[in-house]
């Protein structure tokens, strides 16, 4: 892959080191599991979904996918192609206000569970 942009190849969270598998889970993992267990992750996803629809981000992505599919011909496109092509654009065009709101929600969740 000659086309490298940090945003595509960046995994959402750092990989767990293979040799640390038997050790204690990382803080990030603990938070993730806590969020799943309490249902907060599901709520956050729903909130994010709503916000992205509201600000027109989803429609924008839909249009990009459509344009790409039209260009390539609908029988020559796979979901993986689309994810690969659209992900960097999608990450880059999320409005800062949405990011800020989500971060705020995660912070307040952490604060409420830490006590």
């Amino acid at each position: 892959m000659s086309y490298k942009r940090s945003s595509i190849n960046r995994p959402p969270t750092p990989d767990v080191d293979k040799d640390r598998e038997n050790q204690e889970p990382t803080l990030q993992e603990i938070i993730n599991i806590k969020m799943i267990e309490t249902g907060e992750k599901e709520r956050l996803k729903e909130l994010l979904r709503e916000k992205l629809i509201e600000c027109g981000w989803r429609d924008e992505m839909k249009a990009l996918c459509r344009a790409y599919t039209r260009k390539k011909g609908k029988n020559n496109v796979t979901v993986d192609d689309l994810v690969h092509v659209i992900t960097p654009k999608g990450r880059a065009s999320i409005p800062d206000s949405v990011k800020a709101e989500l971060l705020q929600r995660i912070r307040s969740f952490l604060a409420s569970t830490a006590t």
């Binding site: 959402p12 990989d15 767990v16 598998e21 990030q28 993992e29 799943i36 267990e37």
Partner: peptide, 13 residues
């Protein structure tokens, strides 16, 4: 909490 059997990661999209 589903996680990848190969790398143990649960937070993959």
């Amino acid at each position: 909490v589903p996680r990848c059997g190969a790398c143990g990661d649960a937070s993959r999209p």
